[in-house]
Design a protein around this nucleic acid. Structure first.
Lengths: 355, 355
DNA sequence: CTGTTAGCGCTTTCAT
DNA sequence: ATGAAAGCGCTAACAG
């Protein structure tokens, strides 16, 4: 017992010292009849352990229900087993689903998740993140939009050598992360509307700074083209992804000389505003005008009429983004960009073109 | 330099060893001309430090921008500076706001937050939480509804001596935490409806297991009584806090012999379902029937017509719940129950009684 | 393939 | 009121 302070048995008999009742690595070592270093090797999937020894250790771990103490690993090692998810509150639903997915992947791989609310355009973002990294010894970062597009931040992360994973970054394929083909999704949506006989289809776009706005607008134009419809700049108005901006945009479109028969709002919140504006004028959806959104937030099913929209697999997106990050942490270059499938959800807000 | 492995200067010159560039407690001690123990005392607000010494140390900390390494404190001490927020996904909006509030309080007091999604009626909840506590060395727990009402869980937490703080627990005043007078809020809402001339006011309740359902139903009855209106059991139907159950409940009420002129849904999601059911029948809100909800989720402003409802200060609730927990952690018995104010949000879905 | 020996950076005894 | 020494539980070098 050279150097050992307490044996496993003593520990249980003397719960006053140290963390009460906690099983330690040396207890596992003793139980498996090996050294603590060997246990450590097994725990960390290091090579140079015979299959036989490995099995013995694993059995002991199982039997003693041993779990390494996170803070001890962190203090001794170079990894923190901690990743942070940075966000600047877009919609709660979106964020919560992403978060649950990220959490799921982290828990599965025994990583801890730290949440870091940030303000996108604040000029101290880089400094904030930097001190977060230093103080919490972050192993990696999950980026959510629109922080995925902050070039200064990305550059600094690369400089610091901190792995990160992006969700729906504007510049796709360049980083580790997850993407959804929003462009293709909108094309599909336009095909749906054109198939219903609509020829004057309007679009209320999101803020230009968001990648999502760009792809959705591009999909709108390409969708029109594929349907053989002419693009008309007067049918496109700028929104802000907010309910209010959807409401305002719809009124602008309805007041125009030749109002559209269908409106594709850049997201569900704006679509809700569009429906409100139409309803207030005594017009009917989809009888007079068809409306569609994007995101399939809960509101899509809860407004009247229910909303035709595009569903992104948000929970899965979080899970995959985190998994790729953890791969990248384990071995630089092993993470990739995963493309996840969208779904066109046809509901009651779209129907045959009127007149 | 007896026993010291590296001085502050050496550390910066030899970034290969240890954590690169990190300022350690001994650097602060050296800079302040005191022992590391004294620095530790100042850091932890311990007594037995002269004001003069304390000031010197604080200056050094400031100047060196020193932050203790969490894992080292945890490993050495008995506290983990970690609290968990347990939840069983109610609405995203509610949860996200609570979470942001909790996070805010934790960050302000240099505590870490761990998120623990759970399933309310799973019978392994207690075991799950127990292992969470042991493995992560939790200092305390924030409970969100309906987990606040799991008696087995509460009992176990008390047994283990783990402090916890509840948000809107059914059994109020018994624990540390935060509450809102939902009963009084509904009374106020009923006064609003009665004031508009409504005499047949229906209620769609939430699941009986939720404290919220109980208070809201009780407030409905008391509100009627205060307005001099008779309680009629046929005007109360059971819902599940879901959009679908609100839709179904409204149809049931509308099909009855004497339909109500106003419907108070137990939450906003159900109210949205109610509005949909009414609209589908070609009736108008509030022209024919007034509708109100509870919670003031974003949907309340995004449906047509916008919803009269009750707002709870969710972000603040999270913040206060966490603050009280941290007080309790610091000194058992010092946390309390805080009562936060609600707001009656009158919007477009309620109006004068018809006919 | 396996074990030994030092620490990681901080808090805790226990002296002084 | 202050300090010296001894770990907390684990991983990292370096031996064997």
């Amino acid at each position: 017992m050279t150097g050992k302070k307490r044996t496993a048995v003593e520990a249980k008999q003397a719960p006053g010292s140290g963390r009460p009742g906690r099983v330690r690595i040396e207890d596992v070592a003793a139980s498996a009849g090996v050294s603590i270093k060997t246990v450590s090797r097994v725990l960390n999937n290091e090579p140079n352990v015979s299959a036989r020894t490995r099995a013995q250790v694993e059995a002991a771990v199982e039997q003693l229900r041993y779990r390494p103490l996170p803070s001890a690993r962190v203090l001794a090692g170079r990894r923190s087993y901690l990743v942070a998810m940075l966000f600047d509150n877009p919609s709660s639903n979106y964020l919560m689903e992403i978060e649950l997915g990220v959490l799921d992947a982290c828990q599965a791989q025994h990583y801890n998740l730290m949440l870091a609310p940030l303000v996108y355009n604040a000029d101290d973002i880089v400094a904030k993140v930097e001190s977060l990294i230093m103080q919490s010894q972050l192993d990696g970062i999950v980026l959510t939009p629109p922080l995925t597009d902050d070039d200064a931040l990305l550059a600094r992360l690369v400089d610091l050598g901190v792995p990160y994973s992006s969700i729906s970054a504007r510049e796709q394929n360049r980083h580790v992360g997850v993407v959804v083909d929003e462009f293709g999704a909108v094309c599909a949506l336009m095909a749906h509307l054109a198939g219903l006989g609509h020829t004057r289809i309007a679009h209320i776009s999101g803020p230009a700074a968001h990648g999502a706005s760009t792809w959705r607008l591009a999909g709108y134009r390409e969708g029109l083209r594929r349907a053989g419809l002419r693009y008309d700049a007067k049918l496109v108005v700028n929104g802000e992804f907010s309910y209010e901006s959807g409401y305002a945009g719809a009124n602008q479109l309805l007041d125009s000389a030749q109002p559209p028969t269908a409106i594709f709002a850049g997201n569900d919140d704006m679509a809700a505003g569009v429906i409100c504006a139409i309803s207030e004028r005594g017009l009917s959806v989809p009888g007079d005008i068809s409306v569609s959104g994007f995101d399939d937030t809960p509101i899509a099913r809860q407004i009247y009429p229910s909303l035709t929209t595009i569903r992104q697999p948000t929970r899965e997106m979080g899970r995959v983004a985190a998994s790729e990050l953890l791969k990248e942490i384990r071995e630089m270059g092993s993470g990739g960009v995963v493309d996840l499938a969208y779904t066109l959800q046809v509901r009651r807000s779209t129907g045959p073109a009127s007149g």
